[in-house]
Design a protein around this nucleic acid. Structure first.
Length: 326
RNA sequence: GGGGGGGUGCCCGAGUGGCCAAAGGGAGCAGACUGUAAAUCUGUCGGCGCAGCCUACGGAGGUUCAAAUCCUCCCCCCCCCA
């Protein structure tokens, strides 16, 4: 028994059924779901980003879903800033906090005491991105090698996105980018039970492939509506700019090509399904690396049954990690 | 029936005598990841008892020291004429 309760983190690849298990579990805990999904955060794309259905949201309160305007751009640190108070509040009020979602970094940001580098003037980033286009990633790499060799070595010469981030921090703050190791430390802000839902790879892929056509159909409507709200310049710009915010959602670019008449439906389905499978694979990599997660295979199991199992686990406290325990 | 084009590794596709287990892309697999993370990047990618060997470029023969590449016959696909 764990009288203090705990944070329950429910993770897993897209398509395993985190949402339905989360709803069942929230019902049993008489708590709400704190979503941990970098794309469901955005408003206006419930189908594209696979948000919980209106029925699910009516049954259980879901926090941090559809709260960001699609023009905006969220971050792991911003997520931590909004998710942590919710977690703390639930823990104090109900003894439990339920965090459900597939974004590994956001999960760590919410649940672990991560030492996040500060935000910087967006203008600095803009300039670095521009420089990357003009001079290539190699130029950024060379500069980072000078300013923070360890960071450069870790990031490599081709990863423009992360080179930009590291450089903007080093250049504007004077602080090093490298040197932190707490991302993978088994450290938590509260007692935490991490559960990873999985499925045999083939079955997971079958589910993803089966649901994709519907996502394209529904997502196309959402993308159309979104584009209608843009001026033609904005719309053209969006096609060229580096992916950010909702545009970095799997399927957004592909669906945009489909909506613009530049590619067919079947081709779009194939691309999006493949991208989703790859994403699921990366999520599984996170889960493996996380190490602390109790893995539950949900094959042939009803969400309620899985929720019961997780509840029992939570009540036993057996796999619940103390904040500084290994 | 006549003329033309083509069949390459899981898929698409380059390769026209040796430097070819075969460019490139996709898929698949593994990994990295600290204010863009559903992003971005890396590695791997025929098999094996792996400094070598085996199997492989539609099939069967042949030419050659050497063939995915040349010749013969056969099978299949596409286009045009009939």
């Amino acid at each position: 028994m764990n009288p203090g309760g705990a944070v329950i983190g429910l993770l897993g690849p897209t398509g395993v059924g985190k949402t339905s298990v989360g709803v069942e579990l929230a019902g049993r805990l008489r708590a709400r779901v704190i979503s941990c999904d970098s794309m469901q955060l955005y408003r206006g794309f419930p189908i594209l980003t696979n948000q919980p259905t209106p029925e699910e949201r009516a049954a259980v309160t879901h926090e941090l879903v559809g709260i960001v305007e699609p023009g905006g751009c969220f971050s792991a640190a911003q997520y931590a800033a909004v998710a942590r108070p919710l977690i703390d509040e639930d823990l104090a009020r109900w003894g439990w906090a339920l965090v459900v979602g597939g974004t590994g970094l956001y999960f760590r940001a919410a649940v672990a005491p991560l030492d996040m580098a500060p935000a910087v003037d967006p203008e600095v980033r803009r300039r670095l991105e521009q420089r990357a286009v003009q001079q290539g990633a190699a130029a950024l790499y060379a500069e980072l090698s000078r300013l923070d060799p360890e960071a450069a070595a870790a990031i490599g010469p081709h990863n423009t996105r992360r080179l930009v981030r590291a450089l903007e921090v080093v250049v504007s703050g004077g602080t090093a980018w490298s040197g932190r190791g707490d991302l993978w430390e088994p450290a938590y802000r509260h007692p935490t039970l991490t559960v990873g839902l999985t499925l045999e790879r083939e079955e997971l892929y079958r589910r993803i492939d089966a649901r994709t056509p519907g996502i394209i159909v529904g997502g196309a409507e959402e993308v159309r509506r979104h584009l209608e709200g843009l001026t033609s310049e904005e719309s053209a710009e969006e096609r060229e700019a580096p992916r950010a915010g909702i545009e970095s959602a799997i399927g957004y670019r592909e669906i945009r090509r489909y909506v613009d008449g530049r590619q067919g439906f079947d081709e779009t389905v194939t691309q999006v399904a493949a991208a989703t499978r790859r994403y699921a694979r990366r999520q599984l990599t996170w889960l493996r690396k996380l190490g602390d997660a109790v893995i539950i295979d949900v094959h042939d199991r009803a969400p309620g049954e899985v929720a019961d199992q997780i509840l029992a686990l939570a009540l036993s406290g057996e796999h619940t990690k103390e904040p500084r325990q290994g």
